[in-house]
Design a protein around this nucleic acid. Structure first.
Length: 286
DNA sequence: AAGTATGCCAACCGCTGAATC
DNA sequence: TGATTCAGCGGTTGGCATACT
């Protein structure tokens, strides 16, 4: 029995498939084959036509989704790498829930996959912190804890590879994802202790975010401040540069209200300087 | 070992904007 | 110019797998 049919616990009969409305549910191997064959010959697009002519009793939408998320060549499956996770966090901070835009920067990854990752992993973190995923608190946590931690993990990974005398290139050099040039050319650039996830380092990102001032390079002053004082001073006197959200819908939003880091720390979030509880939380997730 | 909770992911649904008639 | 169709996107759901009690 087809595994996907088994997964959903039902299989339509022939009569259901014929003339009883379009078929829904998991795709069978035969359907996959029909769709793949058709698209190989005729190319993508015209999904309703493709569905009919390929002999599939499916909607065009269903065919398109199946192709994009599963059948399309170069679809990457399996766990997201640290680099990909970092990229998702960065991109989401800029783009919000525009999954397709985010997916464009992660070759082989689908918007659905990224969306699922965000909902299952990232939103879970927000839930455990008892804060809304769109809240200032959560965004700051992500920015000040998780992104730096991910960067650090990547740096550590890179160093371990270096220790192996570069017998094999780091994963981010050999992988398919679009890795920042600076990272592949010089780990020290990317993995500087004060490293700020820099949107500008990726040509792909630059393309996507063109004509926008890169807010990431402006974050240096706020990244892991040596103490909360500098941060709060900057925010209070407005001297700190203020990243703009391109869409205006949402971003970090910190330039509007600032962040009461001391209060957050007192409330137990304690992520200034590491935040062990959060670190362990993140580690559990990864 | 059995029951329950949670994670994960594939797929569907509904909305929106663009293209076409 | 309005109606219709289509493609694409984001949100949501359903069900299996696994972990936990």
């Amino acid at each position: 029995m087809d595994s996907q049919v088994r997964k959903y616990g039902y299989a339509r009969t022939e009569s259901e498939d014929q003339g009883m409305g379009v078929r829904k549910g998991p795709w069978t191997i035969d359907e996959d084959s029909l769709l793949a064959q058709y698209i190989t010959i005729h190319g993508e697009g015209h999904w309703n036509t493709a569905a009919r002519r390929a002999g599939l009793n499916r909607t065009g939408k269903s065919c398109r989704l199946r192709w994009l998320n599963y059948l399309r060549p170069n679809v990457r499956r399996g766990n997201l790498t640290l680099e990909e996770q970092l990229l998702i966090l960065q991109l989401h901070s800029r783009l919000g829930n525009r999954w397709s835009k985010i997916a464009q920067q992660l070759p082989g990854r689908t918007d659905n996959e990224i969306k699922n990752y965000w909902r299952t992993r990232v939103q879970k973190q927000a839930k455990q912190l008892k804060c809304d995923v769109n809240s200032e608190q959560f965004r700051d946590t992500m920015r000040y804890v998780w992104i730096p931690q991910l960067s650090e993990k990547i740096r550590a990974e890179s160093e371990s590879h270096m220790d192996e005398l570069t017998a094999s290139p780091p994963s981010y050099c050999s992988g398919q994802i679009d890795i920042p040039v600076a990272a592949s050319e010089s780990g020290s650039d990317l993995f500087d202790p004060n490293f700020i996830p820099d949107m500008s380092v990726s040509s792909a990102l630059s393309d996507a975010l063109d004509a926008q001032a890169s807010p990431w390079s402006d974050l240096t002053d706020y990244q892991n401040p040596p103490c909360g004082q500098y941060y709060s001073d900057s925010m209070q006197n407005g001297s700190g540069s203020c990243p703009e959200n391109d869409s205006g819908s949402w971003g970090w939003g910190w330039c509007q209200d600032g962040v009461d880091m001391q209060a957050m720390e007192q409330e137990g979030y304690g992520f200034i300087g590491g935040g062990e509880s959060l670190e362990s939380l993140w580690n559990e997730e990864n």
